[in-house]
Amino acid sequence: MTTSTALKPRQRRGSMKRARRWQTALHYLLLAVVSLFFFLPVYYLIIGSFRPSSEVLSGLSGFVPTNLSFDNYRGVFDHLSSDATGHFGQFAAVSIIVTTAVVAGSLIVNSMAAYSFARMQWRGKKIIFLLVVVLTIIPFEAVALPLYYMFSGQRDTIAIQAIPFIANAFSIFLFYTFFLDVPGEIEEAARLDGAGPLRTFFQVVVPITKPAFATVAILTFLAQWGSYLWPVLMVSDPTVRPLPLAISIFQNQQPPEWGQVLAFGTMFIVPVLAVFLIFQRWFVASISSSAVKG
């Protein structure tokens, strides 16, 4: 999945230079148009967060960076200034804790299960693995209602926001495909050294399958950070409220404080965008390996 090859055959030299320059220009034009489509809403979010609410929704001038100020951000923090409303930092902390717990938990639990399916022999394994594969198609939304029914006694806790999402059939499946490729000799050597299955797994197998862990970590993170439906059902207390739920505080204002909504949205997304920009390579690699492997 590394880059670089495919382009060489195109490098013919000679008379076609002018045509190619045209082509390149066209290519850039297309790229610019496409990028604009993807980037404009992002730009609008960020610029809007610095403009007065009254000017956010005003046709094309919504894109013009005038009258910039931090007023919307101040408004957000003013509104969230007491224990009664909850604090922005609190919401962010809840989101971070829940997401971290889910990502960490799912890396450990699902990789171990996948390893067991891919590399260990035990009775009933095949049928159970088949069941796990079938489970990959059940969407969470489909079981949200009965799940809410089962755990309504645990509402308003951090744990109930995280625990249901740790075990994940698709992650098991991804790990499984990676583990199939681990050379048997390595495990054999570890076993001859007297390592038990736990040590073999954590000290020998995990280090050589890091890309698998990066893939699952990133995909899990993306799904979890914006998780909306489950918190809506399970959380009402401001002390355990995650960020996606808190947006509606600002959407329900009269008149709508669109500037504050966008400011909140920007604070919600910018840390993720920053992480994404830094780790873009891994990010891309992990998504592509989800397909090549999956």
Binding site: S82, A84, S152, R155, L233, S236, P238, L245, S248, N252
Partner: peptide, 21 residues
């Protein structure tokens, strides 16, 4: 001890609260 809830989540908060909560 005051707690405030977004209006779209309020009814659910009351309806889902266990008697003790």
């Amino acid at each position: 001890n005051l707690k405030l809830f977004p209006s779209d989540q309020y009814t659910k908060a009351v309806n889902s609260a266990a008697p003790g909560d």
